[in-house]
Design a protein around this nucleic acid. Structure first.
Lengths: 224, 224
DNA sequence: GCAAAAGTGTTCTGTCTACACCCATGT
DNA sequence: ACATGGGTGTAGACAGAACACTTTTGC
């Protein structure tokens, strides 16, 4: 039996999220050729023969942006036989979280940030893939520490709360939010403040991976 | 640019779970040829050119068992370049939940049930895939109604509790379990009993999809 | 009558929600 | 002095965990 089907390809599509300007943004490239020429599309590539899907995802990310410490996870595989008019392409979607100010887009890649709530028509089934990624992101935020992946190392409590409000699309009570974080004991006060605007300066915190791991091992989660 | 890489194949592997004899079981076939000849392996197949991954998963299931109303969902894609010694095969794993007594295994498929806690060495990376599926199953049970997929239409509360105890691998308090189910109001008393052994007969219930949907739309989940 | 599983409530504790005012700064 | 966001506590409702005895049946 010959396993190998010469008419099939495997691709990786990337849904890269960031939060900037008080809105959730996704990284899109512009199609330079048919099909879907000139439409926006997710960064993607056919995988190479000797790389894993994860490696392909990192490679694609490097092609469009210089970045570090990127959170990346596999999302879902999309397989409609005619999702790509050129032939049979099964694509494995990945989703990534980056800190807006730590990412330098590579100009010749044509990649730019788009607010998630003002997307135009996209190439292929990419609208569906983004929708799926968005649901996953919201779930992640609700019971993991994914939110810290969207902030720089030091952040204020208001910035952190903003991430939750922007991604989940709802207001959160300030006192309850802070009370819960204090109880979880996963933040460390840096002893510094952030001065900005004509108001009281805000304390800066860092996420304490060490304290978090102790909690996780006791099965404690993050219900926001 | 030619998209299609002639040296790659996409497969679907199935992790089919059931609960029987107070243990969690998984469906395995026996390899008839190299590689891994005579070892147990997950049911699998290369996908056809014009079927989706979901369709391939259903087709594989039909090849090994006659069954109905099977819960099926995509799990994860495994892609190590040398996971199959014959060539590059990216596999998309699916996981399925079936009611033991509603499944008729097809004899010539060599498929049989194996208790999850007494697995021998398996072909390919199938041990890893099963491990991943098991984690997903436990999560599913904790905040969805997946447990009902493992029981016949009518069941007793003790049978339902047994599913949770067997899959999660821990004892649950009978009174708390029943109190929560009563509060959730997703079960309907059939007005029948199950007589069995020398003890009081047990009431039979059915899962009320209708009541469940009303709850789910209010965002109410199932924390066991 | 006895073995075996079915069935049933209360108390305690911890967590979530709702809610309003003072503080520190820049202009 | 005023505008702006930073920072703080309490009370009530609800949900989870611990815990033991009575009921109904087959033999």
């Amino acid at each position: 039996m010959n396993l190998l089907n010469p008419k099939m390809a495997v691709a990786v599509d990337l849904v890269v999220f960031t939060v900037a300007a008080r809105s959730l943004q996704v990284l899109l490239t512009q199609r330079q050729e048919e099909p879907f020429k000139n439409l926006r599309a997710l960064p993607a590539s056919i995988i190479h023969l000797s790389e894993t899907l994860d490696e392909a995802a990192r490679r694609i990310l490097r092609m469009i942006a210089k970045s570090e410490n990127v959170y990346l996870e596999q999302l879902y595989s999309f397989s409609h036989p005619r999702r790509d008019p050129r032939g049979r392409v099964v694509t494995v979607a990945y989703f990534a979280l980056v800190k807006a100010e730590k990412v330098a887009l590579i100009p010749q890649s044509s990649a730019i940030w788009y607010p998630i709530d003002a997307l135009e028509k996209l190439a292929f089934d990419h609208q569906e893939i983004i929708q799926y990624a968005l649901e996953r992101l919201r779930n992640k935020l609700e019971y993991t520490t994914a939110a810290f992946q969207l902030l720089s190392q030091r952040f204020t409590l208001s910035e952190l709360q903003g991430i939750y409000e922007i991604v989940l699309g709802k207001k959160i009570d300030k006192r309850n939010f802070r009370k819960k974080l204090k109880a979880l004991n996963i933040l460390k006060d840096c002893g510094m403040v952030k001065r900005e605007g004509n108001h009281r300066p805000a304390r800066l915190y860092t996420f304490s991976e060490f304290r978090f791991i102790k909690l996780r091992d006791r099965g404690i989660l993050f219900p926001f």
